[in-house]
Design a protein around this nucleic acid. Structure first.
Lengths: 205, 205
DNA sequence: ATTGACGTATGACAACCTGTCATATATAAT
DNA sequence: ATTATATATGACAGGTTGTCATACGTCAAT
């Protein structure tokens, strides 16, 4: 998070800096963001930047914290309206996000942010229709015991595999980041699988 | 992917380079990886590196393609043994991944890789027990209509929200990367929500 | 054996980047 | 008026990257 010095800045100066930051984050993906370019555009000396932020990451955190606030606010609204319908919430959440992101300046930022996640992980090659998920599914598909699950058609089977992949990836990531919590996270993983299994497995006749 | 020149390299030289690459990718997260350090450690001139790889990303792709192969191989095995049990597969998958990653050199690499994804996204602050997921859940939890879902206890409710969040995030990412496919991806999202809803919603009495 | 063609190797170069630090300046407090 | 504290500044050291003109080695055909 930015230092207090940053928040004490005269409005005008802070806005100019913020605008420069957003422009730069919209221009290129995160790892190509240049602090040099930011300070130049904002017309502040290089040293000042480091008075406000410790580093590029710090800036990103700040930008995202705003975004998170917006999302949460919207979520509360939706839940109130629907009387607590989770699925309704997540349906609206996507609309909201896309609407939010389609603002001129925000759009480039989002694109670069997400491009970054994906490219860095490189688990998701870019060719549409040829994602790693789809490739993996095509490999596994013929091996799946089709009779076992209460799924309607090939499509739903794909969706289930996709869900499982997401959970798997998230778990692995979590464990690497918090090795000390590995066993808790592992347990949660097993529980999640069990939960899905309970609902998706066809009753034996 | 590396150029053919790279694969034509004499074994010894290629191995030395590969080893240097793995060391460097184990040392620091992706965006701090230094091609300079790699070529120095491998004892090859700087220009040569660019003869083989176009760039850092290229190297990562190559490293990950190996990894993906291993995973896929294991998956086929598991499916054969279990007769196509998806949940069994994903349970074993995590074990396999963690075992694979606990090899000395691989471990650092994995840690850095995943750290990168997370830190860059910054949606996942580091404090254990205080992930964005958990924070979001605590916010939403009281608003959820507890009677609506066939879930057992608070824990399962949390797991469901977590799953929904993963799917949401994945969808948003996908749309930003393939805006031209937005509507297809959107449809898939809706289908996934519907699928989960069908199973998780309690029958009305 | 000479010539050319091709793939490969090389390292100097220009252009950029970052984080720090000693110094200067402003602002407030005694 | 003096001291303390907060902020501003920009030069600097040490790094990075990708390119390119040049040099090398090998193989084939004249």
């Amino acid at each position: 998070m930015p230092t207090s010095t940053f928040f004490n800045l005269p409005q005008e100066k802070r806005n100019k800096l913020l605008s420069a930051i957003k422009d730069e984050f919209s221009r290129v993906p995160f790892d190509e963001v240049s602090i040099n370019k930011i300070v130049h555009a904002a017309g502040i000396p290089r040293g000042s930047f480091y008075q406000y932020f410790t580093d590029k990451n710090d800036v990103l955190c700040y930008l995202l914290s705003d975004f998170r606030q917006e999302i949460l606010g919207m979520a509360r609204e939706s839940m109130k309206k629907s009387g607590g319908d989770l699925f309704q919430l997540f349906s609206e959440l996507l609309d909201f996000t896309l609407a939010f992101a389609s603002q001129e300046q925000v759009n480039g930022f989002c694109r670069n942010l997400f491009a970054d996640i994906r490219v860095n992980s490189s688990l998701y090659p870019k060719q549409p229709g040829k994602t790693a998920q789809e490739a993996a599914f095509r490999e596994l598909s013929p091996l799946i015991d089709r009779g076992a699950y209460a799924l309607q058609g090939e499509d739903e089977c794909f969706l289930l595999v996709k869900i499982l992949l997401l959970i798997y990836l998230d778990t692995v990531t979590n464990i690497f980041l918090n090795p000390q919590n590995a066993s808790v996270i592992r347990t949660q993983y097993d529980q999640t699988l069990a939960l899905l299994k309970r609902f998706m497995t066809k009753e034996k006749e």
